[in-house]
Design a protein around this nucleic acid. Structure first.
Lengths: 190, 190
DNA sequence: GTTAGCATGTAAGGAGTTACATGATTTT
DNA sequence: AAAATCATGTAACTCCTTACATGCTAAC
């Protein structure tokens, strides 16, 4: 069995440590703030993962030194291996376990990503959503006539939401494409 | 620690068994079809849960008898206790662990629910979504200026999606309300 | 006769949560 | 002096998935 670890957490942790070294508590606060309900992580998952990353050489613990009068806290910083791992995660547009969350975290880190990678992520996501929409339409077809109206209405509404999400992605892709054009890279959205 | 079991599965299983007695394989097929990607359940979760429900007296196994030439299969049917449990689950508009899925499954079963209960579920859901939207807006506010544009765009988009979802709920609530009016119960959506 | 679908299950393990345990520091 | 917040961690538990094990029946 291929042990494929959660990715969302790794992505979030490595991505934020890339910005600046941090200790666990601080990291969690940031994630809480920036992920905006997209995903919350508990200490029970964060701390053990940070340790595991340390063992795996992805991060270094920057001294258990009490740092001038403060109580001891463990400041983690990315190693080169960690940075490499982050790049790998960032440029991987694979299906992913929990696509919605995973894409969200990914997107949150777009500021530190190359255009080519962004494009890959965006169109990968678009493709998967399109598949979902397809499947939903098929399900709606099978249900038609012989289904209860509430179920039908639910799926209809979900299809609409999916459609809108895809349109949003198309807009983003278009914008990125314009960025790549001779006119010059104008920068991120808005 | 308050042992609060998953609910989504219970709801789905009991809800579908209420419609007709069924064996596990069949149940799974139906769930797969009707939940339309909202939620998939594996045999690894279904079969053990059916057993547990049997032990708990929520369902009865209708004979291990091979049923005329067919290979033996275990047909489960709701007991009175199971029916009561289902009603309890159905009329519980509580926060719920995984609100999106839980609401979806709930909604799928609206056909067999009293108006009063439907209203409670719908407005409960609406309330929680409104809270989420609020929190998102606050997060957007905190991020404003000092946040990266991609993160901002993501949250903006999510807020929009939330808004739409709430509007949808408002529409449904309105329709249900009309159902309750003197004009007479006209029936489900559309 | 072999593939595909019906049908039921178990074992191992992944991912994360909650609740607990502990203690320092800052604010009220 | 108490309460809030900073800070790190662990143990137990939940819930579910994957992969395996097994065997029947229908269709091709």
């Amino acid at each position: 069995m291929e042990t494929r670890r959660s990715r969302v957490l790794d992505l979030a942790v490595l991505g934020h440590l890339a910005e600046a070294p941090m200790h666990g508590y601080e990291l969690r606060k940031r994630l809480d703030r920036e992920l905006g309900l997209l995903r919350a992580f508990s200490y029970g998952s964060l701390y053990p993962r940070l340790r595991a990353m340390r063992c795996g050489g992805l991060v270094e613990a920057d001294g258990d030194r009490p740092a001038a009068g403060r109580r001891p806290r463990i400041v983690y910083r990315l190693t080169d291996d960690g940075r490499a791992a982050l790049l790998r995660l960032l440029s991987d547009s694979a299906p992913a376990e929990s696509d919605d969350e995973c894409f969200g975290v990914h997107f949150t880190l777009f500021g530190r990503t190359r255009l080519e990678v962004r494009m890959r992520i965006l169109s990968g996501r678009r493709h998967r959503l399109a598949q979902r929409l397809d499947a939903l339409h098929q399900a709606l077809g099978r249900l038609d006539g012989r289904g209860d109206p509430y179920t039908h209405e639910l799926h209809r509404h979900r299809a609409e939401a999916l459609r809108r999400e895809i349109d949003w992605l198309d807009g983003l892709i278009e914008r990125e494409r314009r960025c790549a054009e001779p006119g010059g890279p104008a920068g991120p959205p808005r």
